[in-house]
Design a protein around this nucleic acid. Structure first.
Lengths: 344, 344
DNA sequence: TTTTTTTACGCAATCGTTCCCGGTAACGAT
DNA sequence: ATCGTTACCGGGAACGATTGCGTAAAAAAA
């Protein structure tokens, strides 16, 4: 089964012209007479001609499309970011190709190869938890592929980046827990290698120290898959609950980590926020409807997508190689709800 | 800024061979000697050669990629379906290009044009609420583009379809409400034109009638945007609450409709399930954590994606035009939780 | 040794489009 | 009559890859 499209040759043949003339007429070149132009344009419209982007891509070595790699589109933060990306891209005549790494370095690499070989003009990436080796990104970037990182950025590559103030977000959230009487605050951290993990962990540490509390290293648990696998969260939680100095609150550094903590705590019969306070990074729009309503640190996801795309288009359309790159840092929003306010 | 890739010509030049020889060596043709093959293969591997899919697409008039159009990836049902689609597609060497209609007929059309002109080998589609005119789909399909519809199908086009038993899903859910003492059951329906809306509405009507209850037409409210816009849900809800015969339960026929009903009911201070029972179609994995835990009709989304992709690949790889199409109907899962059980 | 066959490779067309070169009218100026 | 413009238009190469066909050299058969 094949799908045949109308080509410039069909028009040329039907009108008794050369392909060059047709091409020029369609592109409104000055060297084509008004009559011929009209002839071609009318006929093209009538048979519903559309230039073949594949042929164009091959010729121009550009595709007017940008590739996006995120870990999971099912994640609210990423789907919101993608909406931001699309809004800017479409306004500038670019198409967006979305792909998921599902936190796997292999799939990330595969997607990367697919996208680049598909001649995307640039990439917007939030790296997978699993990825340790950024040499492929580096090589790609060195060979001239415009890349903008967001959320989970990689510091060994010099390019535009869009992030939030993760340090401050975690700091404020932790401080909020302290101010609400929690003293043994645990941290459920995403994969250790991630930029966001480090920054959020640092904010947490600083807030505890500034509050005169000591950081109990056993209260810091890493989840390699960012909470995507319930079992890893359960293991981490069980370890926390088995601790001599049992935590009275948790700050979770990823969306799925946050909701899965709540799920497991409820399953274990622990009351939130009384038995255990809970706050976490999340962009889900259902958090206010949860039982209890979840306190969250929210990222301006849509805006991040917009900004990342703007920066990328700037990179793509720049004539000369860009050498000075910027890192945009946006603010987070701390939304206090029931899960982090001990009302005993 | 341009990104230069290695081509077959580079290899040919470096090795003093013709491009045909290189091509054949890479494709392991019998007409090429072992030594030459090894030479080419080694060199290709060393300089990290990858065939240019754009050039291949142009030549072969196929791209080994399939296009997916859904209304919104932020919707759990669709993101789960996409995961199902990807799992089958990748196993068969196909790539997946995702695009969102965001319920707009225009954007759907734009995406459709983009995808087809990008030479996708086939399409998997759940149509937008807004779409009334399916002639473009029809024309595309008549001209040989393989299409599989899922969830929101269109009956004027004869092709493979993957749906759930929406009638039964709605019937069972409505009956469940009746059995739990609710008598004035309202229905929040998605856009009227949608296949799923009609089927679910029919199930609801039948269940009421079979229970000896009369259908109050004022209890049926349509939301053109499927609950994506909170205001439309609020308007519909306000109308329901202003009814002389005020409903005591709601069945919502879409994910966002369901959660936004809950959101608004809570905002209005109405207790669920006591003041108002609530049940709805939803695939969100957070429904059990809501307050109250939400009763839902759940669709086997991942499986639907898998099946749709299987059918599409079958269509794509068929030598002869396929004429007999099937409609796969899967079962829904009724999950009863607190929101639909009046415990007064 | 001559003829035939096999092996191994190159040439050129093709996919749809653009664009660099030309080329050829018509027309006014010399 | 010749030249220079101007206005239009066509030929053909290019983008990267595949592939049918042709053919030289080597091997096998005569």
């Amino acid at each position: 089964m094949k799908f045949e499209a109308v080509t410039i040759k069909d028009i040329a043949k039907a009108l008794g012209l050369s392909t060059s003339t047709v091409s020029r007429a369609l592109r409104d070149s000055y060297e084509i007479s008004q009559e011929t132009k009209k002839l071609v344009l009318d006929y093209a419209a009538r048979i519903n001609y559309h230039p073949n982007p594949i042929a164009l891509s091959l010729k121009e070595r550009r595709s007017r499309s940008i590739g996006v790699i995120v870990s999971e589109i099912a994640n609210s933060f990423f789907s919101q970011t993608i909406n931001g990306i699309e809004s800017i891209a479409y306004n500038n005549g670019y198409n967006v190709i979305i792909s998921q790494s599902r936190e796997s370095a292999d799939r990330e690499m595969l997607n990367l190869q697919y996208l680049t070989s598909r001649s995307v003009d640039g990439l917007i990436v939030s790296v997978a938890t699993e990825t340790r080796d950024f040499s492929f990104f580096k090589e790609l970037h060195d060979r001239g592929m415009p890349i903008v990182f967001f959320d989970r950025v990689v510091d060994v590559i010099q390019t535009h980046k869009v992030i939030v103030d993760n340090y401050k977000g975690a700091y404020d959230a932790t401080l909020h827990l302290v101010q609400n009487g929690y003293r043994r605050i645990a941290n459920m951290v995403n994969a250790a290698g991630l930029s966001i993990s480090k920054e959020r962990l640092a904010g947490y540490r600083a807030a505890l120290e500034d509050s005169g509390l000591v950081v109990n290293e056993n209260h810091i648990k890493y989840c390699q898959h960012g909470g995507m696998i319930v079992a890893e969260v359960e293991d981490a939680l069980n370890e926390l609950l088995a601790e001599g100095e049992r935590p009275d609150a948790i700050i979770a550094s990823a969306d799925k980590l946050t909701t899965n903590c709540l799920r497991l705590l409820k399953a274990k019969g622990l009351k939130v926020p009384d038995d255990m306070g809970l706050i976490g990074f999340s962009n889900t729009d259902l958090t206010e409807l949860l039982d209890p309503p979840l306190s969250v640190i929210k990222q301006p996801a849509f805006e991040m997508g917009e900004i990342a795309t703007g920066l990328l288009l700037q990179l793509i359309e720049s004539k000369r190689p860009v050498t000075d790159f910027e890192t945009r840092v946006l603010g987070t929003e701390l939304i206090i709800r029931g899960s982090s306010v001990d009302n005993r």
